[in-house]
Design a protein around this nucleic acid. Structure first.
Length: 532
DNA sequence: TTAGGGTTAG
């Protein structure tokens, strides 16, 4: 009503009215109306331009916002700090390093590069563009630092592969008694939960209780994820049940937690509760649900969910959803059905989908469909060793040694090669590294002995090598429990022997083993970065 | 009347 009145009077073309209207329209999601007011204004000041640019950024329309920023710069109105800030955020969103650097040099010329908000935005831009070194330089020379800039650099380190440094950084902040706000805490939970550091996670939990952050949904959602990724599903469920207000991320996190632990039934049950609570599922809810169905072999239920996604909620499935379905069919041994499903897809199958099919063929040892999937994958990613290695493995599992040799030869001819994966663990500042079948370590015999013991325990639990069944999911949980005990031993004064029990890659992938690409961390330390 | 960081899948 109000805007109709304003429009009919033409007042919206005046600066003061137009500026207010732009902000209000964007706040209520009326993007085109906001833009229309902007386009039709007689005169625009710095607030008009900045309101428009920042509104576009907040709606993730980064390219459009940068176009407007450039347009502004060629006109008579000069940008101010807030305009530059919004443009930097657009560069972060687009991971546009060149544009970000250009804005950085403009800020230098204007002498406003050291305002704390500008510095944190610059650090964020560099981190998101993969240039954590540049972010670190700004951090080191910064005059003012606050919770935001601390969180930015912490996330920057973690997201660029320097997780250990990020942890040390946080521990320093924690020990120094600096004010830690809930935003930083939820960011830290995300970093810590990927490394199965249950005891650290528990410390953060107690800190959040002490600081009275118990009502913060970001912190609680972070705790749900941290506990579930660290193997303590019941603690996740406790955090979830104590929450007074749950948003879709809370529900998704808890559903994913059950799915991750192989408890498909509880995941599906929770989905029903979510719906009866009136919370609409999102595309991510369906990914977790399909994942859950895949791991417990609930094929029909999974197909029903996929259908309801579009029919009931109007969510268009993405390639990830289709890949989950292919994985589900494949794990259930329905390889032909998986192939037919892919052929009937409304969109062109991508790498993820073919990888899922090939993965299923590897598990089942199916050379025929495997070859079909591998060829499709080679078309998508000609430089990848994955299809060749998978095919070689399928052939060896079937005793087809000639075919295996031919595949390896072909791989060499084309010039693709697989980098050997190295696992390592740091014990008392010494790094112990391993490759597959490695017997170079002085205590290798002891370690292989323990590995055999673990395998026995797994077999007792019903583990069938190479056969993925619901039982194996149970075994996965069991294995997590054993490993957790070993970790406790270490934390409470264990020795090398206890550590070596999980220094071996027993294939569970629970995060104790540093992957190859993380060797960056060592280089980082050698360069004298970070905290020692 | 324009402002910086945070939680979910794989």
């Amino acid at each position: 009503m109000m805007h109709g009145l304003v429009f009919s009077n033409g007042y919206e073309k005046e600066i003061s009215v137009g500026n207010s209207l732009i902000t209000s329209y964007f706040r209520c999601g009326c993007l085109s109306s906001g833009r229309q007011v902007f386009d039709e204004m007689f005169e625009r000041n710095v607030i008009t331009w900045t309101a428009m640019i920042s509104s576009l950024v907040q709606n993730e329309l980064y390219e459009e916002s940068l176009e407007l920023f450039n347009q502004m710069r060629s006109g008579p109105v000069c940008p101010n700090s807030l305009t530059y800030l919004s443009s930097l955020m657009a560069c972060s969103g687009l991971q546009a390093l060149t544009g970000g650097r250009q804005i950085h040099s403009l800020l230098w010329k204007l002498g406003i590069q050291s305002e704390v908000c500008i510095e944190s935005s610059l650090m964020d831009m560099y981190s998101k563009c993969g240039q954590v070194n540049d972010a670190w330089k700004i951090f080191e020379s910064a005059q003012d630092l606050d919770e935001v800039s601390m969180t930015v650099i912490l996330m920057g380190l973690a997201q660029n592969g320097f997780k250990e440094e990020a942890k040390r950084f946080f521990m320093k902040l924690f020990e120094s008694g600096i004010e830690i706000d809930p935003n930083m805490l939820s960011a830290v939970l995300g970093v810590f939960s990927e490394d199965t550091s249950l005891s650290l996670g528990k410390q953060i939990h107690s800190l959040s209780i002490k600081r009275n952050f118990g009502f913060n949904s970001y912190v609680n959602n972070g705790l749900i994820n941290m506990y579930s990724k660290c193997g303590d599903l019941e603690e996740s469920a406790k955090v979830f049940s104590r929450m007074s207000q749950r948003n879709s991320i809370s529900w998704n996190s808890m559903i994913a937690a059950f799915a991750r632990h192989g408890d498909g039934c509880r995941a599906l049950q929770l989905y029903e509760e979510m719906r009866s609570d009136g919370i609409a599922p999102t595309d991510i809810t369906f990914l977790s649900l399909l994942h859950a169905c895949s791991h417990v072999g609930l094929v029909e239920k999974g197909m029903e969910l996929l259908k309801s996604m579009t029919d009931v909620y109007g969510i268009i499935p993405r390639a990830e959803h289709y890949a989950c379905v292919v994985d589900m069919l494949g794990r259930a041994g329905l390889l032909n059905e998986a192939k037919t499903f892919i052929e009937g897809l409304p969109v062109k199958a991508d790498m993820l989908v073919w990888q899922a099919l090939l993965g299923a063929c590897s598990i089942r040892g199916d050379p025929e469909i495997g070859k079909y999937a591998a060829n499709q994958l080679i078309l998508e990613t000609p430089e990848s060793p994955v299809p060749y290695v998978s095919m070689a493995n399928i052939y060896s599992s079937r005793g087809k040694w000639k075919e295996r040799a031919r595949t390896i030869k072909r791989m060499k001819e084309i010039g693709v090669s697989k980098e050997i994966g190295i696992s390592w663990i740091e014990i008392e500042k010494e790094v112990h590294s391993f490759v597959v079948q490695d017997r170079m370590h002085p205590q290798a015999e002891l370690m292989y002995g323990i590995l055999e013991e673990l395998l026995e325990l797994m077999l007792e639990e019903g583990y069938v090598p190479g056969n993925v069944t619901p039982t194996e999911c149970q075994t996965g949980i069991c294995l997590t429990r054993y490993i957790q005990n070993f970790q406790d031993l270490y934390i409470f004064g264990g020795n090398l022997e206890d550590m070596s029990k999980y220094a071996l890659d027993i294939g569970a992938g629970h995060g104790y083993f540093k992957r190859n690409e993380e060797s960056e961390q060592l280089r980082f330390q050698q360069r004298g970065f970070g905290f020692h």
